[in-house]
């Protein structure tokens, strides 16, 4: 049993310090999209809405509505956005109000 005992000693070193500090490996977690407002036109928005498998993106006239609760961070919108969407890096999304997970993003006017 000595073999287990020695290995047990490492525990203290690997345990996360969260919430005091955030582990660096979390940078590789998939996260919901963030958008570049200057390039987020209605045409682009529709393309993103179309590709989202989770119903997390909805077009509401001049707004793009992102539901962080439904978003599975699948990356499909980012893949088709040609750089308009990127991974937000945000994973601490817990909330007591479902409504706080709904983000409304103003679309850029298509004129010009």
């Amino acid at each position: 049993m000595a073999v287990w005992f020695l290995r047990g000693l490492r525990r203290g070193v690997i345990t996360t310090r969260y919430p005091k500090a955030i582990d660096s490996w979390t940078a590789s977690l998939p996260t919901p999209p963030a958008f570049d407002a200057r390039r987020l036109t209605p045409a682009v928005a529709d393309r993103l809405v179309d590709v989202c498998p989770s119903g997390a993106l909805i077009r509401d006239y001049e707004w793009l509505v992102l539901d962080l609760g439904a978003c599975t961070a699948c990356g499909r919108c980012i893949a088709v956005s040609r750089g308009v969407a990127r991974s937000s890096g945000a994973f601490e999304l817990s909330t007591t109000e479902r409504g706080r997970l709904i983000k409304r993003i103003r679309l850029r006017d298509d004129v010009r």
Partner: peptide, 23 residues
């Protein structure tokens, strides 16, 4: 104690999955 060590290995493998493939 075995479970803890196996879970350490599992967690390292999952983090490797994330680092290599993004999930």
């Amino acid at each position: 104690v075995g479970q803890a060590q196996a879970e350490v290995a599992l967690e390292e493998l999952l983090r490797l999955n994330a680092a290599a493939f993004g999930h």
